[in-house]
Computed example of a mutant assay.
Amino acid sequence: MFAVVKIAGQQFRVQEGQSLYVPHLQAKSGDKLEFSEVLLVDNNGSLSVGTDVKAVVKAEVLNEFVQDDKVIAFKMKRRKGFRKKHGHRTQFTQIKIESIA
């Protein structure tokens, strides 16, 4: 059984017991979350899509703040002396899917 869930503006394909990284959520470690915006549910071959879906995905926050590797954006124009360096680290929240009901 799997579901496609919309979390923080992004779609994720989730299964029970799966651990995944989602965009940073305002939740503490150990908090229980419910995601009601379920777009698709596959229950042993029977698909429910759109308004037919009556499922809720329940998850637990494992780690409230995880940072990705640093990404560097470097711009340079040769022979002009122009160099610009920007960098960032994307922030995530690690959650574990408990149930799809």
Rank of each mutant, 00 (worst) to 15 (best):
F2G: 05
K85A: 05
T93W: 06
I95M: 11
L33N: 12
T51V: 11
N44T: 15
D42C: 15
F12M: 09
T51K: 13
R78A: 03
V56W: 02
F92I: 02
K77V: 07
D69Q: 10
Q10D: 10
V41Q: 08
R83L: 01
M1F: 08
K70H: 03
A55Q: 09
A55L: 07
R89I: 01
Q91I: 07
K54Y: 00
K85T: 13
A3Q: 10
G30E: 10
F65Y: 13
I72W: 10
A101E: 14
D52L: 11
G81D: 00
V66E: 01
K77N: 08
M76D: 01
A59I: 12
F92N: 02
L39V: 06
V66H: 00
T51C: 07
V49A: 06
F35W: 01
V4G: 01
K85W: 02
A73T: 15
H86L: 12
G17P: 08
L25R: 13
K84W: 06
S36T: 06
D68E: 12
K75V: 04
Q91K: 12
A8H: 11
K58D: 04
Q67T: 09
F82R: 02
L33Y: 13
A73Y: 14
H24A: 10
M76G: 03
R89P: 00
V49Y: 05
F74E: 15
F65R: 11
R83N: 04
L62K: 07
K58F: 02
K85S: 13
P23Q: 07
K6T: 02
Q15W: 11
V4D: 02
E64T: 09
G9H: 04
A8T: 08
S19Q: 12
K75P: 02
F92G: 03
E16K: 12
V57I: 05
M1E: 14
I72A: 10
Q10G: 04
I100Q: 00
N44K: 15
L62M: 14
Q11I: 01
K32A: 06
K75N: 13
K54R: 05
